[in-house]
Write a protein that binds this DNA or RNA. Structure first.
Lengths: 128, 128
DNA sequence: CTTGACCTTCCAGTGACGGGAAGCCCTATC
DNA sequence: GATAGGGCTTCCCGTCACTGGAAGGTCAAG
């Protein structure tokens, strides 16, 4: 398979796939013409990566997850620890965003949003 | 005021304040020794920026908000539009994160997390 | 033989800074 | 007056995970 087909089948942009090779997440073969030649196993890795990235795992998390996936003698505890750490970070991020959302929603609600200059949003940002 | 005091009073790192000058958000004066000299008005701007950034506004949003703040004849509708757009993006981001969180929480819950290799998390990531 | 799609590498930019080097300035102390 | 220390300056590189674009090689169809 050339990169175009892999890109289609995985949903990952070709640029991203090349990047993943650069940083050592996949190592496709090379044809005589210099083109990358992807095996089915490369395809599987890329699908795995695409799904892990969709779940918001960092590239380094993905690297570790891939290694555990390949390691048939792994302990599921190691996988769980990565996922748990990621989940905790996501929950913290959600809490932050929800705080922003609450404040912003209040402010937007309090602002008339008309042609006059008085604006509770700016007042709040400029409060002393 | 020198940058150190401004940094203390605003809570912004000195590096960040220099960066804000670089991109034209504040323009402190300069002393004969080359040091930045901040006026009270610069201080107010930086506090304004710090609060807007805490609410997650992008730098470009902040630039626009600052301009509106300075413009005494502004329409509050313009401010509200920026805040509303930002709020919408935050809500979308929260929705994304909540989807990740739900999936991850399920997977973490389903994984024994012991010394054995079988792991629903990896199974899900590698599903065909 | 040409066209156009596909592939290659390399370089630069994103957002919003942070780290660190090299060097000047100011104050206090000896 | 020398020195030590802290604060200030600029400059450049690194972050994260790509994305865009330029310049050029390769392949299949007409």
């Amino acid at each position: 398979m050339n990169i175009g087909e892999v890109s289609q089948r995985s949903g990952l942009p070709a640029k991203t796939i090349r990047y993943y090779e650069d940083i050592g997440l996949v190592t496709p073969l090379r044809g005589a013409n210099g083109y990358r030649r992807f095996r089915e196993s490369d395809m599987h890795k890329l699908l795995f990566l695409a799904r892990a990235r969709q779940l918001g795992f960092s590239i380094e998390d993905c690297r570790d997850l891939l290694a555990l996936w390949e390691d048939k003698g792994r302990a599921s505890a190691d996988v769980r620890a990565i996922a748990q750490g990621h989940l905790t970070r996501i929950e913290a991020r959600i809490a932050d965003l929800r705080a922003m959302q609450a404040t912003l929603a209040d402010l937007v609600c309090a602002c008339a949003g008309d042609a006059r200059p008085d604006c509770p949003i700016l007042q709040d940002l400029a409060r002393d």
